[in-house]
């Protein structure tokens, strides 16, 4: 699809909007529908569109699979690490009350951090799966 002008122009126009929307869903997920799982999937959808329109090699230059492998594990580590931080601060595992002075502020902060971890893992795993499938029959 590398030579299709309309697709290229529309994709270039749409991809930033999709990424922006994914970020909105990620960070505004506490007040409106959304959260890490949805944001991760939408974010990876933007890059899958990029890979389909501009070719897999270009997409892999933008986000190398090796970086994605590291990011996928970093997301899980952020999540589990938050649990251990609360453990060391004197609370239970994943008990966010101890993260800040006020329990409610701590809860809010904890939710934001672990949603970020979820988003990172989900988006990089989805992209990784797509790249693996699409790169399978490469000459």
């Amino acid at each position: 699809m590398k030579h299709n002008l309309i697709l290229r122009v529309i994709a270039k126009f749409l991809i930033p909007i999709i990424v922006l929307f994914a970020l909105y869903v990620q960070f505004h997920g506490d007040y409106s529908p959304g959260g890490g799982f949805q944001a991760g999937v939408i974010f990876s959808a933007a890059f899958i569109l990029y890979a389909i329109v501009f070719g897999l090699d270009t997409a892999e230059r933008v986000v190398p699979p090796r970086v994605l492998q590291i990011l996928a594990s970093i997301g899980v580590l952020i999540y589990a690490g938050t649990g251990f931080v609360t453990l060391f601060l004197g609370g239970n595992f994943l008990d966010y009350n101890v993260l800040a002075e006020q329990p409610v502020a701590g809860q809010h902060l904890g939710i934001l951090i672990i949603e970020l971890g979820v988003g990172i893992t989900v988006s990089s795993v989805m992209l990784l799966i797509f790249f693996t499938f699409a790169g399978r029959n490469r000459p």
Partner: peptide, 15 residues
């Protein structure tokens, strides 16, 4: 919500 995302990951494994 979580089951949907886990579902697509396991579907990918099956594929």
């Amino acid at each position: 919500l979580t089951a949907i995302v886990v579902g697509v990951a396991t579907t990918a494994l099956g594929l």
